[in-house]
Lab assay of single mutants.
Amino acid sequence: MQIFVKTLTGKTITLEVEPSDTIENVKAKIQDKEGIPPDQQRLIFAGKQLEDGRTLSDYNIQKESTSHLVLR
């Protein structure tokens, strides 16, 4: 499924993911596309910070959901 990640600069990154993917996996995909190390990434969805060990389905992130990327 596709999800979108919006950066603070207003850029939207499109990612191909599975509901069973962990947040860690998603951060690795963002690193592949954008070159941002996962330890600098914070992903926010529905006002919550997403934890590495959880999956997209844990957070009820469905296709075409948009989460926000904040850099630390």
Rank of each mutant, 00 (worst) to 15 (best):
E64G: 15
Q41K: 01
E18H: 14
S65W: 08
E24I: 11
F45H: 10
M1W: 13
K27V: 02
R42H: 11
T55D: 02
D21W: 10
E34M: 15
P19A: 09
K6H: 15
F4S: 06
L56E: 00
I3S: 00
D52C: 06
T22C: 04
G53E: 09
K63Q: 12
K48M: 13
G53Q: 11
K29N: 03
E64Q: 10
P19Y: 07
K27G: 01
L15H: 00
R54E: 05
F45K: 03
V5G: 01
D58W: 11
K11N: 07
L50R: 00
P38L: 13
R54W: 10
L69I: 13
R72H: 13
S20M: 11
T7Y: 12
D52S: 07
I3N: 00
G53S: 11
L69Y: 02
L56K: 00
T66K: 10
V17I: 04
S57K: 12
E34A: 11
R42L: 14
T55F: 06
T22P: 05
I23P: 01
E51S: 07
F45T: 02
D32R: 13
Q2W: 12
V26T: 03
I44Y: 15
L56Y: 01
D58H: 10
P19H: 06
T14P: 06
I30A: 01
E51G: 04
D58K: 02
Q31C: 13
E34L: 15
P37E: 06
R72E: 14
E18S: 14
S57Y: 09
L43Q: 00
T22V: 04
H68T: 13
D58N: 04
T12G: 03
R72K: 13
A46H: 14
L43F: 03
A28T: 10
K63T: 11
I36D: 02
I36A: 03
G47Y: 04
T7P: 03
R54D: 05
E64D: 14
T66Q: 10
K6M: 12
I3W: 02
S67G: 15
R54M: 12
I36S: 03
I36G: 02
K6S: 08
Q40F: 08
L56P: 01
I36E: 02
I44S: 11
P19Q: 07
L15V: 07
E51V: 09
F45M: 06
F45Y: 13
S57I: 08
K6F: 08
T12H: 07
L50A: 03
G35H: 06
V70Y: 13
D32A: 14
L15Q: 00
